[in-house]
Nucleic acid binder design. Structure first.
Length: 935
RNA sequence: GCGGGUGUGGUGAAAUUGGUAGACACGCUGGAUUUAGGAUCCAGUGCCGCGAGGCGUGUGGGUUCGAGUCCCUCCACCCGCACCA
């Protein structure tokens, strides 16, 4: 009887479907376990062999947990809004919903064929109105919330209004721009006076019109509308988030990105910076991702110092991490975009300053932060600041090495202790006051905190590290500065000028935004998926009657970004059909949070940060009871393609085999891997591949075949090295593919795909089938029981540490040894079938039946290894001399160290080894090793 | 520049607490069997050497009876971040 994988897999897939075998419901009597795969975008190309790697691993783990008695939630769905479907729509006019539907169908087929245990009744799609209704709801909650810094949580805007009505902003600490009032129109803040510093009184608030109040509140909402510098990508016709821009180019498509000032919806993620940073410590994620998030959040501790601008009322605040070097400040530098630049520049410098500003604004993001381009540029404003401690006048410059978006957009320059300041001072011949004992900072900068300070009055004699707290204290006493913590993390732009995304539940009245709460806003039909002639987003094409709801003067034309829907999808899986709430508290209390999250490492600063942010927000408003979404995460490595090459002799149609290619001048060409079997080219297939190769001639090797060269690179269509799971499933079955992908190597590592190895794994399954075909109900030998229990232990331990590759090896060893020991008795085979079931579910179900197991193998209890069978009665000791193994010694396991030593020393080979030398020491590690030190 | 990661046979890799380096597979070599199959079985396969033996986990050093594993140095490759004050 042969292993007929096709029949087996088909039969059990059908049976499981009939039995709803993957359906899960909450069950308070059983512990839950939530295994989640990263949300796929259903692309038109379908899955290649690299995609399912993580899905297989999570599926194996989900099944394993189920055997252990856990109630396992293991869902799948689609991040189905997004650019590719829309780009396709622009080109073809086909509605993105249609493309998306087709792609999802294909994905579903591929996923089902792999035998994943997803509960498909929980499938979600971000582009489904029943889903995005709740994405919109979360947005509306963010809109209706502000961040209370004192309580360190989000609170309803209603409570802020109540506070404003009774006490104004007195006693309220909220997250906002540090000078939020400057974002308001001058005529709004005019009544509050020139020296308004943010302390809005109850009277001032009450005197505002409704429209003004709404504009003021906008400064405090967690989802707010603001004019800001955004990453505008003209080629894509939309803005991009910081994490969607790499080296000044769009991540998708690689198009140039410019800075542009636009009115956009923004998420106040910066309010959560500290919590996002601090809570990383408790997560079981890789250090590299946690570290990358820490860098992205970019906390730095230091001080804010205020400088007065000479002969004006203006004040310039700067942030510094080195307040200890205050006495070394010899000039200030502002970002070219700094709002005070025009006001403080003295008449004689206006022209050059404006020219410099102009030049800086024309530079693209890429040029401005371009690697290598570290040429120092800058321009004096002619104005001076007063050093707050010494009272000395210091010049104020502008330069584009100072970023408008970080800190206050201004710095105090300490050339002695800062590389960039030092270079700047050298370039423009500015003073470099020495402040470190024994360091000549005129010739070299000194940036370490270890130097002893001098010329620094009360700080003299302190090291930098000691000087920092002392300096902060001094600044606070003198009232010219204070301790401060700064974050690099900026608020996230939440508008996209696109069609295929969630519409905002927002309309405008006199250009004041208002939430639409009466009905859900759904995507209207439009005549084209392009911006309007006026440059408005595609939704501006919708006529009033195209919208299902139309309120106010106009609807919001932007849509939400891709990360909106994917920031909370793991919550919807817990309660996918609920029409009252995004997820009932009862269900999220049972299922949440995600216990194990498996996916690629490419979402480090995007998805993973945004999900954490929304989770914390939903926790604050008590919609869920946990504040981190993903307890443990594993990032699978990429599966690389193995490309094959042929070598064409230059100027001919002759192709030379790889081993002889050095004899000719050749051109290397990718060849489709489907014509290559173990590096040997099917020359006929190659000739038939393309017209131009039809009369190709081959210079063959000695064995009369054509050998291709190979290289490991990313899988891509253009390299003809893409392997789809479909053909492999057809040829070997899903179980083989699952086992093979796990067998390839450690999950987290990148590895090349090589189909040659798959036959070994397929053989293993065939051998397993053969073992079970002999199933009987005799009693097994001690040897067979030892093999079984050793395998149980190894497989269990390895699954627990997610070492899936060695799980397969252990099973192979087990099956090989059982075949040798004739271990085909039912009480050996049944536990073995369970061990196999996470990795090869179809075959395991068949084998379970063959060995007369009851019910489905999926629900069988995971076997436990019995210590009794793990203890060996004999031990083969390696005997080494000076650490080098010379021979083996088979001894009784119960023998004590003393006797082991004696036995070793008496051995004839020992005598030979120590000939002419003396024994200095004998080390016996019981059960392990004997080492004899001679000399 | 900073941060993270990876270096072990011809290939993918294993070695979990410092204790027989290369398990398990692929590939390769030889053989058996068979109405040639991408089947099965047996033997071999880290490198050098006929052999005894020697050498071997990126480099060089150290700790140890014993190091792929711990410490230091350097090198190569991959991935992030990068004028962040």
């Amino acid at each position: 009887m042969e292993y007929d994988f096709q029949a087996i897999e088909e039969r059990w897939k059908a049976q499981w479907k009939t039995d709803n075998a993957y359906r899960v419901e909450e069950d308070p009597n059983r512990p839950k376990y939530y295994v989640l795969d990263m949300f796929p975008y259903p692309s038109g190309a379908g899955l290649h062999v690299g995609h399912p790697l993580g899905y297989i691993a999570s599926d194996v783990f989900a099944r394993y947990k189920r055997h252990q008695g856990f109630n396992v939630l293991h869902p799948m769905g689609y991040d189905s809004f997004g650019l590719p479907a829309e780009q396709y729509a622009i080109q073809t006019g086909q509605h993105p919903a249609i493309t998306t539907e087709t792609n999802i169908k294909r994905y579903r087929e591929q996923l089902e064929q792999m035998g994943f245990c997803y509960d498909w009744t929980r499938e979600v799609r971000t582009s489904d109105p029943k889903y995005y209704r709740w994405t919109q709801w979360i947005f509306s909650q963010l809109f209706e919330s502000w961040y209370d810094v004192q309580a360190d949580k989000a609170r309803p805007i209603r409570q802020l209004i109540e506070a404003l009505d009774s006490n104004g902003l007195d006693g309220v600490h909220l997250a906002s721009d540090s000078k939020w009032w400057e974002n308001l129109a001058p005529k709004i803040r005019a009544p509050w006076g020139d020296d308004f510093g943010g302390q809005l009184s109850a009277d001032q608030w009450r005197n505002c019109s409704d429209s003004t109040k709404s504009q003021i509140l906008m400064e405090f909402r967690l989802a707010y509308l603001a004019d800001s510098e955004v990453n505008w990508c003209p080629a894509l016709g939309t803005v991009l988030a910081n994490d969607e821009v790499k080296d000044g180019l769009s991540e998708r498509g690689g198009h140039p990105v410019h800075r542009k000032r636009m009115r956009q919806w923004i998420m106040r993620i910066s309010a959560y910076a500290k919590r996002l940073l601090d809570d990383l410590d408790g997560l079981d994620w890789t250090d590299s991702i946690k570290e990358a998030q820490r860098n992205w959040i970019g906390q730095s501790q230091g001080a804010e110092v205020r400088f007065n601008v000479a002969e004006t009322n203006h004040q310039l605040a700067v942030f510094t991490t080195r307040p200890d070097t205050l006495y070394g400040v010899s000039f200030m530098v502002l970002a070219p975009e700094h709002p005070l630049v025009p006001e403080i520049t003295i008449p004689g410098h206006k022209d050059t300053v404006e020219q410099y500003q102009q030049a800086a604004s024309l530079k693209s993001e890429r040029e401005r932060q371009g690697a290598g381009d570290q040429t120092v540029t800058g321009c004096a404003t002619g104005a001076s600041a007063i050093h707050p401690l010494t009272g000395k006048k210091i010049p104020i410059w502008i330069a584009d090495y100072v970023l408008a978006g970080y800190g206050t957009g201004a710095i105090m320059a300490v050339p002695a202790g800062d590389e960039r300041d030092w270079k700047f001072a050298k370039t423009f011949d500015l003073q470099i006051p020495g402040i470190f004992e024994g360091k000549d900072t005129n010739t070299a900068v000194f940036t370490e905190k270890s130097a002893i300070l001098c010329n620094s009055e009360s700080l003299n004699g302190l090291t930098g590290s000691e000087g920092i707290p002392a300096a902060i204290e001094m600044l606070e006493t003198k009232g010219v500065g204070s301790k401060q913590i700064n974050y690099r993390l900026r608020d996230a732009v939440f508008s996209r000028q696109r069609y295929w995304g969630e519409p905002f539940p927002i309309c405008y009245e006199n250009e004041i935004p208002r939430l639409i709460e009466s009905t859900q806003v759904t995507l209207p039909e439009v005549d084209a998926y392009l911006p309007t002639e006026e440059g408005e987003p595609p939704l501006a094409r919708a006529r009033k009657e195209d919208w299902n709801v139309f309120e106010g003067d106009r609807m919001e034309f932007n849509t939400m970004p891709g990360w909106a829907g994917s920031s909370w999808y793991f919550l919807r899986y817990m309660d996918p059909l609920n029409e009252e709430v995004f997820c009932s508290r009862e269900k999220s209390d049972y299922w949440g949070p995600v216990d194990l999250y498996i996916g690629g490492a490419e979402h480090t600063t995007g998805h993973l940060l945004y999900s954490r942010f929304w989770t914390k927000f939903l926790f604050d408003i008590e919609s869920i009871g946990f504040h981190e979404p993903f307890k443990q995460m594993i990032n699978q490595g990429m599966i690389l393609g193995r490309s094959s090459f042929v070598y064409r002799v230059l100027g001919t149609n002759q192709f030379v085999t790889a081993e002889r290619r050095k004899e000719f001048k050749t051109q290397r060409l990718h060849v489709d891997i489907s014509f290559v079997e173990g590096d040997t080219l099917d020359t006929e297939a190659f000739r038939n591949w393309r017209e131009e190769y039809s009369d190709a001639e081959f210079i063959l090797g000695k064995d009369g075949t054509y050998t291709c060269g190979f290289e490991v690179e990313k899988m891509s269509k253009s390299k003809f090295n893409v392997q789809t799971p479909d053909e492999l499933v057809e040829r070997y079955g899903a179980d083989t593919l699952r086992c093979y992908e796990m067998f390839l190597g450690p999950l987290t590592q990148h590895k090349p795909w090589d189909t040659q190895g798959i036959s070994g794994v397929h053989n293993f399954l065939r051998k397993t089938y053969r073992l079970f075909a002999q199933s009987d109900d005799g009693s097994p030998s001690d040897t067979s029981l030892r093999i079984l229990h050793k395998t149980i232990k190894k497989v269990t331990d390895d699954l627990n540490r997610h070492a899936f590759n060695t799980v397969i090896s252990a099973l192979m060893i087990g099956v090989n040894e059982l075949l040798d020991s004739k271990g085909h008795q039912r009480n050996i085979l049944q536990p073995l079938a369970i061990l196999l079931s996470p990795v090869a579910p179809h075959l395991a179900e068949e084998l379970w039946q063959m060995s007369e197991g009851k019910g489905s193998v999926m629900d069988a209890t995971w076997p436990e290894s019995d210590e009794k069978w793990l203890i060996a009665d004999r031990i083969t000791y390696p005997v080494s001399f000076n650490g080098k193994v010379r021979f083996q010694l088979d001894l009784d396991a119960t023998m004590e160290a003393k006797d082991v030593e004696k036995a070793a020393l008496q051995h004839e080979k020992t005598t030979a080894q120590i000939e002419g030398k003396t024994i200095r020491k004998v080390i016996v590690v019981p059960g392990r090793i004997i080492n004899i030190v001679v000399g």
